[in-house]
């Protein structure tokens, strides 16, 4: 069918493209340069890989990284950026975080004459934002969900992090797609994913909802804007012996991709990003800029891939996760 074919084509294109970016080694050296890296947090697979991608690339190119982890706290990240500006690095790369909170501080970075690059943060002050296409991710995941459940049924949605712009985009895309499927209903109230203890908390809440809707067919699927709640939800569904309920998430941590690969697992799809490549690409862009290339596009989109039961084995290999 054309839908599946399109996804497969996308996959092939995605990894072909990824391969060329990953191995193109025309990146100028960063010798003697100090690169400020400020990230909102590193406790999630995506955050950590994107962060490591930056750190490793800075080291590979001979630069020095000043790396700062905000511990998922806006105030702390802002204090770190404020001090970072005073340290006057050659370039600052900012990764994820709450858009509106960051903007005035990102402006201060530019006002101080420091070139600013961002990872997954849309900002008018950023020279280049390296990111996944979250609109596409949200749309593809929602379409896959709608297609899997044949356009009909009730779904549970975790919506605890609407304050994070990329999560909001994915959620909004879900809503947009669901407009075309009037027979799919989001069960209210929506659930709240939390940090810390995300997995057990999601497990417990989904178990609650499965006992509230005890019949086969009452709940068709569980959606979350990242994949840690998906881990808890999937296990709750297995424990409650309700394998007809499917789960969907974003990011593609290796264990979640493995769950999707398992034909018996309720985990039906995860939109896998390439965070390590995203981080690496951001540093490469910064290095090119410092070497005098001031014609960078404002956005570099690193392809993502929707991992489903059909393509999980291939995707695992292509994502470099196969053991």
């Amino acid at each position: 069918m054309s839908f599946k074919a399109r996804i497969l084509a996308g996959l092939v294109f995605a990894f072909g493209f990824a391969a060329t970016t990953a191995y193109a080694d025309d990146v100028p050296s960063l010798k003697g340069k100090r690169i400020g890296i400020t990230v909102i947090g590193t406790e999630h697979y995506w955050d950590l890989k994107a962060y490591q991608g930056q750190m490793d690339e800075v080291k590979r190119l001979g630069g020095t990284a000043i790396a700062l982890d905000g511990g998922r706290n806006d105030s702390r990240q802002i204090s770190q950026i404020q001090t970072l500006i005073a340290q006057k690095p050659d370039v600052i790369i900012e990764q994820l975080g709450n858009g509106p909170v960051l903007q005035p501080w990102l402006k201060k970075v530019r006002d101080a004459g420091i070139p600013l690059f961002t990872v997954d943060t849309i900002s008018p002050h950023s020279i280049n934002d390296t990111t996944s296409d979250n609109f596409g991710i949200g749309e593809k995941l929602a379409l896959q969900l709608a297609s899997d459940i044949h356009g009909k049924g009730n779904i549970l949605v975790f919506n605890g992090f609407y304050s994070v712009p990329v999560c909001a985009i994915r959620y909004d895309e879900l809503k947009l797609v669901l407009k075309a499927f009037p027979d799919i209903k989001i069960i209210t109230p929506e659930l709240r994913d939390v940090i810390p203890n995300t997995v057990q908390n999601a497990y417990s809440q989904v178990t609650d909802m499965l006992s509230k809707y005890p019949n086969k067919g009452d709940i068709a699927a569980v959606w979350s804007a990242w994949d840690v709640p998906q881990v808890g939800a999937t296990q709750a569904i297995v424990a409650a012996k309700r394998p007809e309920v499917r789960t969907y998430g974003v990011d593609g941590s290796p264990d979640v991709v493995k769950m999707v690969k398992d034909p018996a697992s309720p985990a039906s799809a995860v939109a896998a990003q390439q965070p390590y490549l995203i981080g690496k690409t951001a540093v490469d862009n910064a290095a090119r800029y410092l070497a005098g290339n001031h014609d960078l596009p404002p956005y570099t989109f690193v392809p993502s891939v929707l991992v489903t039961k059909e393509n999980a084995a291939e995707a695992e290999k292509a994502l470099g996760q196969a053991s």
């Binding site: 947090g41 590193t42 406790e43 962060y51 881990v231 264990d255």
Partner: peptide, 8 residues
């Protein structure tokens, strides 16, 4: 940095 370890 806080990577979860899954035994799934």
């Amino acid at each position: 940095g806080g990577t979860p370890i899954y035994l799934v």
